[in-house]
Amino acid sequence: MAITSIKNLKEFSTNNDRFEGAHTLCPGCAHSMIVRELMNCTDDNLVISANTGCLEVSTAVYPFTSWDTSWIHIGFENAATSVTAAEVMHKVRKKKGTLKDGDAPVKFVAFGGDGSTFDIGFQWLSGAMERGHDFTYICLDNENYANTGGQRSSATPIGATTSTSVAGTHSYGKKEKKKDIVSIMAAHGSPYVAQLAPNKWKMMAKGFQKALETEGPCFINTVSPCCTEWKFDPKDTINITDLAVDSLMFPMYEIIDGHELNILYRPKNILKVEDYLGAQGRYKHLFKPEYKHIIEKIQSDIDEDWARLQRREEARV
């Protein structure tokens, strides 16, 4: 495949965007930063699917499309199903010689929100991973069902207030821990799984290119700060992402062939999670005296997870 140069940002910027403006994502939305970066990582043809969610509704507002590539919209569950069906069709037609240009390189990519990836499309994603198609699945993880008004998903962290885990005098917000989707996907035996963030553009581009180049089903969870539901100023999308990765709320790492774990980013100064939480309205209530213990709990969870990641990196199991 033809990957594009990511040696430095100047080189990278010579790519011609294939994701167009005048989509209707909120100002400052990270979804489009991530999509643009993926599409700029290769100049191969792309077949992209997106299931229902902010990205899909905002980039296909009839009669417009923001996609300069083949693009399939399908129901909430089926980003993985539809793009892997296209992948099979492409393979068969290539063999039969019925493609217009059988030699043109094509990459198959699915985008899903966390709601569809962690919850509603989970079974279908799992099936596609197990069948071993050659595709890359990218989850745009904004930790809630943003498109329908910010309901909690199994990606929502403890303590966040959402429209279905409302914080108040009797509740500190969501009670359950975030699902470890990266480990679950690695457990499928996937050749390449990673968690990446858009503020570290080069690391993210490297991971995207690895996934696109690797044959077989690859999965990448990307942190996608959502100013509307996380409640921060749109200008701060990248600042919030910095806080997320430097507090290790979102560690960046990859898992190769289900067991070889590599930590991709070690912050020089690990920030207290308070800095990250305090920058967003959805955690504001945690700073009341009665809920302070939740912040401590989040911090101790992060510390444990980070220790576990490092042990897994050493152990290679």
Partner: peptide, 28 residues
């Protein structure tokens, strides 16, 4: 790299200006 609305006009490694038809004014 971070404009969410493909509104930074870069050509041959140079930043040339803003595409005001697509910019939403997010300030990123």
């Amino acid at each position: 790299v971070w404009c969410p609305d493909s509104s930074i006009l870069s050509r041959d490694k140079q930043m040339l200006g803003i595409d005001y038809d697509h910019c939403k004014g997010c300030e990123v």
